[in-house]
């Protein structure tokens, strides 16, 4: 689905008179709305990555844990979840990346209000619309590259630490 369509549906849902209209005052044209748009766009990607990593855990290990006296919940917390941690992390980073690049759903849903709903991509777009905006756009672009790199490095470090923890013990 194009992000613009998602944004429009969100607008219909949260507009006064819509099914979630009672929230319109606290969501429309506010940062909360921008966060909702980013979350809605990122969630499917995240859920998919996390589900795949949980499904990839060896069912035989879970069976072994059951025979050792662990009920389904203990198996989930002590076997399934720790073994799917790298995938959980990858899903989170993927979701973050999707949110960072979010444009269409946000601008359709909560517009482009400086200080409230103006995300990095929206601010860059707005700057480029002005004849003297190139310098600002450049600064903001550098900032977004830095944020993306920082997230990538952080996730890589975390993944390495988790792998090390799995091999050497927590």
């Amino acid at each position: 689905m194009p992000p613009v369509v998602t944004g429009w549906f969100l607008l219909l849902a949260f507009a006064p008179g819509g099914p979630l209209g009672f929230l319109s005052d606290s969501v429309l044209f506010r940062w909360t709305g921008a966060a909702i748009a980013a979350g809605v766009m990122a969630l499917p990607l995240m859920v998919r990555a996390i589900r795949l990593s949980i499904e990839a855990v060896d069912r035989r290990l879970e069976g072994a844990a059951r025979t050792l006296g662990a009920g389904p919940w203990r198996v989930f917390w002590t076997i399934t979840l720790p073994l799917s941690l790298p995938g959980l992390l990858a899903g989170t980073v993927l979701g973050f990346a999707r949110s960072l690049g979010e444009f269409g759903a946000t601008i359709t849903f909560v517009s482009n209000v400086p200080g409230q709903t103006q995300t990095l991509p929206l601010a860059i777009y707005a700057a480029l619309q002005r004849p003297d905006g190139d310098a600002i756009a450049l600064r903001l672009s550098a900032l977004s590259v830095a944020v993306a790199l920082a997230a990538l490095v952080a996730s890589e470090l975390l993944a390495r630490r988790m792998r090390a923890a799995m091999v050497h013990g927590v």
Partner: peptide
């Protein structure tokens, strides 16, 4: 299985 008290040694150790 968790209440059968089976000490199961699997072929692949697991």
């Amino acid at each position: 299985p968790e209440r059968r008290r089976a000490g199961y040694v699997f072929q692949e150790s697991r």
